[in-house]
Design a protein around this nucleic acid. Structure first.
Ligand SMILES: [Zn+2]
Ligand SMILES: [Zn+2]
Ligand SMILES: [Zn+2]
Ligand SMILES: [Zn+2]
Lengths: 146, 146
DNA sequence: CCTAATGTCTCTAGCAACTATAGCTTCAAG
DNA sequence: CTTGAAGCTATAGTTGCTAGAGACATTAGG
């Protein structure tokens, strides 16, 4: 059995984060020692590694909660799990597209500035006027509504 | 002079967001009408457009605060402004690199799953074991939402 | 001129996913 | 046996908003 510190070290997760995961019900309540300290076995370790890995891949805690409860029912179809992964892939792809546009725009700004006074700074100028931009990089949420 | 609603419409910023920007000192306190409602002129409109555009390009409010105070001093060198833009570009580039690795890993997961029971699901399997991954996508830099 | 509908006001609380602090108790090494 | 690290709980802070409650202001229609 591991203490919370050892578990965190093993999984690459900070101690307060583990307690936070327990608090929100992502990890079950840990066993306690005689002195009221949390103790973890192999199962908890695997569960935390799963969470950590999914977080690294950008899944939200809500998605991870669903994936975990799916993984607890090995006999069922994996369609739901695959759908969550596909949604996450789509999310990553859309962020990638947006960031690519952002990068292009930022590069343009930075390259075009000759480096003089603020009054002539291309960075400041472009920030004040989107029509100087080459791409439409506006935020999806705000461009769709209103 | 515009009311807060008209200003928000013009700039593509929601009304509570404008009040929030004032509250945190990003926008100056607005003039008020006889009935205590906020009124905005051309200068405020430009400032808000600047903020909106910089947000769209992924700058933090803190960076925008600095950029705004720089843009208020047109005689000074623009080196500081350029540095902020370059830092933002670097940030975007590093997020792009990470997201690219994530995308590859998610694609692999999704493609490899044959779609049967959870017990055989490649998605669940890979999430539980990073050593099944082809790339090292770890190290979670702050996953800012954009 | 009155009324109804919308717009605006302040204030508070909530969202994700942690992170940090304070003030304790428990544990392990020397 | 003492000391310092590690653990405990509870609360508050982070970023950039967003949502709600309950009251006041403004505007369009009849
Ligand atoms: Zn410049
Ligand atoms: Zn632009
Ligand atoms: Zn599957
Ligand atoms: Zn991995």
């Amino acid at each position: 059995m591991l203490t919370i510190g050892k578990l965190g070290e093993a999984a690459g997760v900070k101690v307060p984060t583990i307690r936070y995961y327990e608090q929100i019900g992502l990890l079950p309540e840990a066993e306690r020692s005689a002195g009221n300290q949390r103790l973890y076995g192999r199962k908890a370790q695997e569960r935390l590694a799963f969470i950590r890995h999914a977080r690294d891949l950008g899944f939200t805690l809500e998605a991870i909660r669903d994936l975990l409860s799916l993984s607890d029912r090995p006999d069922q179809s994996c369609a739901a799990a695959d759908a969550i992964a596909k949604a996450q892939l789509a999310e990553v792809e859309s962020r990638l597209a947006r960031l690519t546009a952002l990068k292009a725009e930022l590069e343009r700004m930075v390259v075009q500035c000759a480096g003089g006074k603020i009054a002539d700074c291309r960075v400041i100028e472009v920030l004040g006027d989107h029509s100087l931009c080459a791409t439409d990089h506006r935020h999806p949420e705000t461009e769709a509504t209103q």
